Amino acid sequence: GKMTGIVKWFNADKGFAFITPDDGSKDVFVHFSAIQNDGYKSLDEGQKVSFTIESGAKGPAAGNVTSL
């Protein structure tokens, strides 16, 4: 299901971020390909987002990341 959280930090050079979920679970890795914005895919620290949890090769990662 959809979860919500806050972007903890975003590394534009490497194209990934971490989200701190609102439910208090541990921070979730985000690859820029999961960001659903049109055009430039970036996130801002402190931004509120919704996302799903996908199981990636290196463990859980956020999918369908959308700005709220």
Rank of each mutant, 00 (worst) to 15 (best):
I35C: 07
F32D: 02
D38W: 10
F32Y: 11
G59E: 12
G39H: 13
F32T: 07
D13V: 08
K58W: 09
H31D: 14
H31V: 06
Q47H: 07
F51N: 00
D38K: 06
A12G: 06
G46F: 04
T66A: 06
T20K: 10
G46K: 03
D13N: 06
G5E: 00
F10R: 06
G24V: 01
K58M: 12
F16Y: 13
G15P: 01
N64Q: 08
L68Q: 15
T52M: 10
A17F: 14
K14C: 15
D22N: 04
V7W: 01
G24C: 05
I19H: 00
G59A: 08
I6S: 04
P60D: 14
D44H: 15
D44W: 15
E54I: 12
Q47I: 08
K58V: 13
T66P: 15
A12I: 11
V30I: 09
Q36E: 11
M3D: 02
I35V: 07
G5M: 01
G46Q: 02
S50H: 07
D22C: 14
G24S: 03
N64Y: 05
G5N: 00
G24P: 01
K14T: 11
G24L: 02
G1D: 10
G63Y: 01
W9E: 04
D44K: 14
N11Y: 06
I19V: 07
S42E: 12
D27S: 07
F18D: 01
K41D: 11
F51P: 00
T20Q: 11
S33G: 07
H31T: 05
I53M: 10
D27N: 06
V28Y: 05
S42W: 13
Q47F: 06
Q47L: 09
V7Y: 00
D38I: 10
N11K: 04
I35T: 03
A61F: 13
F51T: 00
V49T: 01
G46P: 01
N64E: 11
H31L: 10
D13F: 05
Y40F: 13
I35L: 09
G24R: 03
Q36R: 05
G56Q: 10
A12H: 10
F16H: 06
D13P: 03
S25G: 12
H31K: 08
S50D: 05
N37T: 13
T20I: 08
K8Q: 06
N64F: 07
D38H: 08
P60W: 01
D22R: 01
S50C: 14
G24A: 02
D22S: 05
G24H: 03
G15V: 02
S67H: 15
G59L: 09
T66W: 00
S55F: 12
K8P: 00
T4S: 07
Q36H: 12
D13H: 08
K26T: 10
E45P: 14
G1K: 13
A12V: 14
K41S: 11
P60M: 07
T20C: 10
A12D: 05
W9Y: 14
D44T: 13
K14L: 14
I53G: 04
A62G: 10
D23C: 05
K2W: 13
F10Q: 03
D27P: 09
F16A: 02
V28P: 00
Q36A: 12
S67A: 05
I53V: 12
Y40P: 07
G15T: 09
K8F: 03
K14D: 11
A62I: 08
K14Q: 10
A12Q: 11
K2V: 12
G59Q: 11
F16L: 14
S25R: 04
T20Y: 02
V30S: 00
D44S: 12
A57K: 07
G39M: 08
T66H: 14
Q47N: 05
W9Q: 03
L43P: 03
H31N: 13
T52R: 06
T20V: 08
D13E: 14
N11C: 15
K48Q: 11
Q47A: 09
Y40N: 13
E54W: 06
T66G: 15
S50Q: 10
F51L: 02
I53N: 04
S33R: 04
S67M: 04
G63V: 15
F29Q: 05
D23V: 03
F51K: 00
D22Y: 03
W9V: 03
T66M: 02
H31I: 06
D22E: 07
P60E: 13
A34S: 12
A17W: 04
L43Q: 01
S42I: 09
L68F: 01
A57L: 11
G63T: 14
A57I: 10
Q36V: 14
G39K: 07
Q47D: 09
K48V: 07
Q47E: 06
F29H: 06
V49D: 01
L68D: 15
K26E: 11
G63M: 05
N11R: 03
I53Q: 07
D38F: 12
G5S: 02
K48C: 12
D44I: 14
A12C: 15
G24N: 04
A17S: 01
A61Y: 13
I6A: 03
K41G: 11
K48I: 08
G56D: 11
L43S: 01
K26D: 10
N37I: 13
K2C: 15
G59F: 07
N37Y: 13
A34V: 10
A12L: 08
G46W: 03
G24D: 02
L68T: 15
K14H: 11
K48R: 14
F29D: 02
L68S: 15
I6M: 05
M3N: 04
T52F: 13
F10V: 15
D13K: 07
S25Q: 04
D38R: 04
P21D: 01
F32V: 13
V65T: 14
E54P: 07
D38S: 10
F10S: 12
F16R: 01
G1S: 11
F16D: 01
G39Y: 07
N37G: 14
G56C: 15
G56K: 08
G15W: 04
G46V: 02
A62D: 13
F51H: 00
D44L: 14
V30E: 01
Q36L: 14
V28K: 04
Q36Y: 09
D38M: 10
W9H: 05
A62S: 10
V7F: 03
S33D: 11
S42H: 12
A12T: 11
H31Q: 10
G46I: 01
E45K: 12
N11L: 05
D13R: 05
Q36M: 12
A57P: 13
T52N: 08
V30N: 00
K58S: 14
D27F: 02
N11P: 01
Y40M: 10
V65F: 02
D13M: 06
F29R: 06
G63H: 08
S67D: 15
V28R: 05
V49L: 02
T4M: 05
T52A: 06
F51G: 00
F18H: 06
K14A: 12
I53D: 03
K48E: 05
I35W: 15
K14N: 08
G15E: 08
Q36D: 11
S33V: 05
V30K: 01
D27R: 02
W9I: 04
N64L: 10
D22L: 06
D27E: 08
Q36N: 11
Y40K: 09
A62Y: 07
D23M: 02
S25Y: 03
S67V: 04
V7T: 00
L43Y: 05
D22A: 06
K41P: 11
P21G: 01
G63K: 14
N64I: 13
E45V: 14
